[in-house]
Amino acid sequence: MKNEMTVEFSSRSENESFARVTIAAFISQLDPTMDELTEIKTVVSEAVTNAIIHGYNNEEHHKIWMKCTIDDSGEIELIIKDDGIGIANIEEARQPLYTSKPELERSGMGFTIIENFMDSVEVTSSPGSGTTLHMVKQLAKTKTVYN
């Protein structure tokens, strides 16, 4: 049986923390380990920060969407989407250490971290039509679902 939620929030930096707790609260129904929880929260941080800083150039009046679907098997499907400037060269953007904003002391490791913590990461993006990350992660063991 699937459970689903979608949250839409303003592109404000304080909402990074909000998004982290929201995903943690939803995922906690699958009783993940604290480490798994930290991994998913880190992924959300990186993706949401990218949407705010890169997608929307720190303009606070835009919207970010996060959708999550979970099922009893412990599979987590996570989609994070912005309507921002988009990415011209996705392959380049996904390279470790690549950043288009070296002046901000960005590490260029966001995508690498995301790929490391998720089982699959699909990026859909083009200039002017925003960026969507479609990610899947299977929790280590099948755990009891607590209601």
Binding site: V21, A25, D31, T33, M34, D35, E36, L37, Y146
Partner: peptide, 19 residues
């Protein structure tokens, strides 16, 4: 790594509070 419910039980708080 303990699960979120294991932490909650050990501290006698709810998983909500842990999160």
């Amino acid at each position: 790594s303990p699960t979120i419910h294991e932490i909650a039980d050990a501290l006698e708080i709810t998983p909500e509070e842990v999160v």
